[in-house]
Structure formats: C-alpha cells, structure tokens
Computed example of a mutant assay.
Amino acid sequence: MAQATFKGNPLTLAGNTVKVGDKAPDFTLNKDLVTEVSLKDYTGKIKLISVVPSLDTGVCDAQTRRFNEEAVKLGDQVVVLTVSVDLPFAQARWCGAAGIENVITLSDYKKHSFGKAYGVLIEEFHLLMRSIFVIDANDTVQYVEYLGEMTDHPNYEAAVEAVRKLI
C-alpha cells in the first residue's frame, strides 16, 4: 500500500503499483451501467489513461479537458481513456456539458478493478487517486505518474511526450 495526501492529510492507496516495463494489468470498467470493457478492448492501440477522482472537481475537469485537446493531435493510433468512479451517466452528462468528444470516459464504480490493479484506490474515499499511465500497443507500461497530492495537476507534457515516442 502506498501513501498519498488530500490537502496534506494522509490517504491510503490500496492495490498494486505498476512500474515502467510491467505488463499492464487487466481491468474491468463500465462504459455505461451494463457494458463492461477491459484492457483487451484496446488491443493494438497506444493507451493514455488519465485517472481522476471525480470529473465534477476543478483539477479533474481541467485534466480531462487538456487530454481531450491532446487526443486530437495524437491521432488514431492512440486512445485516451479517463477513468473515475463517477457513475457512467454522470460521466456522460459531464462530457456533454463540457463538450468532451475525444476521450473515452470509463467508470470503476462497480468493482474497483482498475483502482486495485493499478494501486490508485483511495481506501478512505473509495475514489481513485490522480495518476497517468501510458501503455504501448503491446500492453507494456511505458510511463507512470502517481501524484502524491490529490489536488495537484499531473505533468501533462511528460505524459503526451511519452505517447509521442510510441507513435
């Protein structure tokens, strides 16, 4: 278990952390209340996975908007996934209101499969800790950023550069 903070207060992260070079752990996430997807649904694509606690917060909003803009520039070889525990219909509502069309939002609300597999499940809140993962077309982890403070922004440039190196 790793440690992180929310406004300086300690949080406990459950699950296994991943490192560059690891085979990406599989996961089960919801596209809607009944449709589930896993890592294999994105086989052959470079995956930029942006993990946020909740789309309805300022930093998560900004993070998702930023990667939505970047997704257009990265091309068809890349899929940008935003993962949170927000309910799928809340994600769809938020995307519609925000004009988000280039990232795929997926929910870990049901099983916390992603949170546990990637070591980002916050035990105290049952939310996901902000983090970024870049996984190549062969499902090997090529970039990882675990943020120590929940309210900090990730290093957008480093994540996008990690993707560009794989294109």
Score class of each variant (00 low, 15 high):
25 P>K: 03
19 K>T: 05
24 A>E: 11
41 D>S: 15
30 N>G: 01
11 L>S: 04
19 K>N: 09
42 Y>S: 13
24 A>Q: 09
46 I>R: 02
17 T>Q: 09
39 L>M: 02
35 T>V: 03
27 F>H: 09
38 S>H: 05
41 D>P: 14
24 A>Y: 13
25 P>A: 12
29 L>C: 03
39 L>E: 00
15 G>K: 11
13 L>Y: 00
31 K>S: 11
12 T>S: 10
38 S>R: 08
40 K>N: 15
13 L>D: 00
13 L>K: 02
38 S>V: 04
16 N>V: 07
35 T>D: 01
27 F>Y: 10
24 A>V: 05
36 E>K: 06
22 D>L: 08
12 T>N: 12
23 K>F: 01
32 D>M: 12
23 K>A: 11
33 L>N: 15
35 T>A: 04
42 Y>Q: 14
27 F>K: 07
32 D>V: 14
15 G>S: 09
42 Y>D: 12
27 F>V: 08
23 K>S: 06
25 P>Q: 08
34 V>R: 08
39 L>A: 06
12 T>E: 04
43 T>R: 14
43 T>Y: 14
44 G>L: 15
37 V>N: 01
41 D>G: 15
26 D>F: 01
15 G>R: 13
31 K>H: 07
12 T>D: 09
16 N>I: 02
19 K>D: 06
45 K>F: 12
14 A>M: 11
30 N>I: 03
21 G>I: 02
38 S>I: 02
32 D>H: 08
46 I>P: 02
14 A>D: 01
27 F>A: 08
25 P>E: 08
39 L>N: 09
19 K>E: 04
22 D>E: 07
22 D>R: 12
20 V>A: 04
22 D>V: 11
36 E>D: 00
38 S>Q: 06
30 N>Y: 06
16 N>L: 03
35 T>N: 03
23 K>I: 13
41 D>V: 13
28 T>Q: 06
36 E>V: 01
34 V>G: 12
24 A>K: 06
37 V>G: 03
42 Y>W: 10
43 T>K: 15
16 N>Y: 01
28 T>P: 07
25 P>G: 07
35 T>W: 03
27 F>W: 04
28 T>G: 05
38 S>M: 02
44 G>Y: 15
12 T>H: 08
19 K>H: 04
32 D>P: 07
38 S>C: 08
43 T>I: 11
30 N>T: 08
42 Y>L: 13
45 K>A: 14
28 T>F: 04
28 T>M: 10
36 E>G: 04
19 K>L: 04
32 D>C: 12
17 T>M: 11
16 N>R: 00
28 T>W: 07
11 L>E: 08
14 A>P: 00
43 T>G: 14
11 L>N: 08
45 K>H: 11
22 D>P: 01
13 L>H: 04
33 L>E: 13
18 V>D: 00
44 G>N: 10
39 L>Q: 06
11 L>Q: 12
35 T>I: 02
21 G>L: 00
31 K>E: 10
33 L>V: 14
17 T>A: 10
